[in-house]
Amino acid sequence: MTGQIRSRLAGYEHRFGAMFAEYFRGLHATLDAPAFSRFAPECLELVRDLSLRGGKRMRVALLHEAARLVTTEPLEALDDAALSVELLQTHGLIHDDIIDDSPTRRGGPSTYYAYRERFPDHQQAALGLAVLAGDLAFALCLRVLLDSTAPPAVRQAMVEIQVRAASATFMGQISDIERDFTPLPADDVLHDVAEYKSARYSALATMQLGLLAAGEDPARFEKELRRYARLVGIAEQMCDDYEDLFGDAKAMGKPTGGDIREGRRNYVVSALLTAASASERATVERALGDAAGSEETVAAIRDIAVRRGVQQKLRTDVQRYARLASAEAATWRPRWRDEAVTFFEVMPVWSAQRIMG
């Protein structure tokens, strides 16, 4: 099944990449902006550039596989939903990089830093334009659904799903910042932030859109889908936090230790502060939020994490939540197509193994 997953993911990635590029070509030709404006096309180009630098398009895969729970027939509404899902992702990435003051994203400059380089003497304008680029991506994520040829009821339901998902994400972003004001966040706080910040839009809404496009009413299965999305979201956020300290900077497209420099009290930092000695905690606390923190400092914190078993704890926790998500998906088998259910069973465990090794 792992080979089949890789094959299906590659197929979704290839097909969607071509479709996304074609979407932006059409958008450039029809952009409704003042004729004199140079900034508007540049803004759209930055949104396009970041969008097309996407990775494996896991959200697109979840969308299509959710539809496959019901049918294998081609569904036109899936393409519009896929564009909407990835445009909402672009919106989130642009705003994330503003909040985190991140210079890189997906192996290239973040939208915020692209504007800072474009306007070195007008930093407030650069900030404003980056915010507006994120807002443009969000507006486009809804517009593509409003322009869809799907039946009006389906179109309206898809818009509602995306608006609710975006609202949850905004609450998650606010809670994410609030979490970093807590000396040692409890596990429930970390889990709730993971759910609201990413799982609600990246997993739950994506599955809901896929089922809706296939003619299923996702509201009938709200509890099951939420449980699965939350577990997947927790596992994926743990993976993200793990990679930030222990990952390969070249593969991630950004330096390691970013969360330490930004003062993020995430899963890794919380476990580290719990396990460390008093002197080690002092070392970690001094590094948290130090934007100028050196690679040597990050390496020292990494060594503490390995020595205190934090690295292994995160690996174990990720695998546990991935298995719980898999077990949740297994309960869907009497209701939906076996092959697609198997995808949702295997995907969390495979994803965790791919990152954790």
Results as ranks from 00 to 15, higher is better:
M1A: 15
I5K: 03
P34C: 04
L46T: 06
L50M: 11
K56T: 02
M58V: 13
L63N: 02
E76M: 05
A77L: 01
L78C: 05
L78E: 13
L88I: 07
Q89P: 07
H91L: 09
G92R: 15
H95K: 11
D97F: 09
I98Y: 07
D100A: 06
P103E: 02
R105H: 04
R105K: 12
P109T: 08
T111C: 15
R116W: 02
Q124V: 12
V131M: 14
G134P: 07
A139G: 06
R143A: 11
L145T: 00
S148Q: 10
T149K: 04
P152L: 01
Q156K: 14
Q162P: 12
R164L: 13
A166Y: 12
G172E: 00
E178I: 03
L184G: 10
P185L: 06
D188V: 04
V193H: 01
A194E: 03
E216N: 12
R226H: 12
Y228F: 14
Y228R: 08
A229P: 01
R230T: 05
V232F: 13
A235L: 02
D240T: 01
E243L: 15
L245D: 04
G257E: 05
G258T: 01
E262I: 13
N266W: 01
A271K: 10
S277F: 03
A278L: 11
E280W: 01
E285W: 02
E285G: 07
R286S: 09
L288G: 11
A292I: 09
A292C: 02
S294V: 07
V298L: 02
V298T: 03
V298Y: 00
A300V: 10
A305W: 00
R307G: 06
G309E: 00
E328Y: 00
A329S: 00
R333C: 13
W336A: 05
A340G: 08
M347E: 07
Q353G: 13
I355H: 07
M356C: 14
